[in-house]
């Protein structure tokens, strides 16, 4: 029995080190409030960092041991996507963060695998960095936002990126960064996260499917975090839209539900009934273990939670906890 976590972030030590004495990490600064809470300052925005974001790899490993998590497939903190900054800055922060993950993999090859961050505002630069991490650093793929400065990933400009990811065998994990579509509508009650993330992920599924990306790249490996948001629950209305609207059929010959099994989905849906619904809709071979370490929205004691679920068979639990990711990532 193993457990492999696809959804575990890193706020790189190089950020903490270079900002320690008030310096900046490629223009990104750090502030501390009166209660000692830490903030990254990115392009003028203050982004709160949780206490565990500062932990060293050794401290992370101790926490993983406590949680019963064997492997973190580490991805950089989404607050450092930096798509709205100069490409040179985003390329530099991407290289630094990715190199640090490479060092973690080198030191603890049984405990860490890597997903890169990429300067997606510059498609050739993003492809170059993806090639570097896949070919030279031994990564498994990359994590990107649901949109790049307002453009969804079905925009024709990104097709070379998708072709490169497909050819390199890179798994692309989708994860929001910055605000969501709910932020400007209803910024209260944490809804930009608790509804917005799920809405963004659903639009990402739909953009890649309706936009024909999944047909153009039949071997592409995509993982949608947060269980794919509302995708599995809302697929019926997407099918109806495809049946009734010509613009929905522009690129795809099959209804969107036919593409559900082309994606992977992490298991961060919080309730047993929702996880059961996800499994029953997309198939258990498509659901993978993820925890959202080290943020407050991670779910508590994730391994024992999965193990305790009465509506899942032992085979289903093992598929989710490790077998699916072992197969998909070759771990």
């Amino acid at each position: 029995m193993r457990s492999i976590d696809i959804h575990a972030h890193l706020t790189p030590q190089c950020f903490w080190r270079t900002t320690e004495g008030g310096g900046d990490w490629h223009t990104i600064g750090r502030q501390q409030d009166a209660r000692g809470r830490q903030y990254a300052v990115v392009g003028g925005r203050r982004q709160e960092l949780p206490p565990r974001a500062r932990w060293t790899p050794e401290e992370r490993l101790a926490d993983m041991d406590s949680l019963g998590v064997d492997i973190h497939v580490v991805s950089p903190y989404s607050g450092f996507y930096n798509y709205d900054l100069d490409t040179t800055i985003a390329a530099a922060t991407s290289r630094d963060a990715n190199n640090e993950i490479r060092d973690m993999i080198t030191s603890w090859p049984d405990r860490f695998a890597g997903l890169a961050t990429l300067p997606m505002q510059d498609v050739p630069a993003a492809i170059a960095e993806l090639e570097r991490v896949m070919v030279q650093l031994g990564f498994k793929g990359a994590m990107i936002n649901d949109q790049v400065n307002g453009r969804t990933l079905d925009d024709a400009a990104f097709l070379p990126f998708w072709k490169a990811a497909e050819q390199l065998g890179a798994l692309i994990l989708f994860h929001q960064g910055g605000g969501t579509m709910v932020s400007s509508r209803l910024p209260r009650y944490h809804l930009p996260n608790t509804i917005g993330n799920l809405a963004e992920r659903t639009v990402t599924f739909a953009s890649l499917v309706f936009g024909g990306v999944m047909d153009a790249c039949p071997d592409l490996k995509i993982c949608l975090s947060h269980g794919g948001g509302y995708t599995c629950y809302g697929i019926g209305r997407m099918d109806r839209g495809w049946q009734s609207r010509p613009e929905a059929r522009q690129h795809i010959p099959q209804p969107p539900s036919a593409y559900l099994r082309r994606f992977y989905y992490d298991c961060i849906v919080y309730t047993e009934q929702a996880l059961r619904y996800l499994i029953d809709t997309v198939g258990v071979d498509r659901v993978v273990f993820g925890t959202d370490w080290p943020y407050d929205m991670e779910f508590d004691w994730p391994v024992s939670w999965i193990l305790s679920l009465e509506s899942l068979t032992q085979d289903e639990k093992e598929a989710i906890l490790w077998k699916n990711l072992e197969r998909v990532l070759g771990l």
């Binding site: 949109q147 307002g150 969804t152 079905d154 579509m181 709910v182 400007s184 509508r185 509804i195 809405a199 963004e200 659903t202 639009v203 739909a206 953009s207 309706f210 936009g211 509302y230 809302g234 209305r237 997407m238 109806r240 839209g241 609207r245 613009e247 929905a248 522009q250």
Partner: peptide
């Protein structure tokens, strides 16, 4: 509706925006 802030394609404002 609010999905239009993200995309105006494929009728997604109706098929996703309405339930959101």
């Amino acid at each position: 509706n609010l999905v239009l802030a993200r995309t105006d394609k494929y009728g997604l404002a109706n098929s996703i925006g309405v339930p959101v």
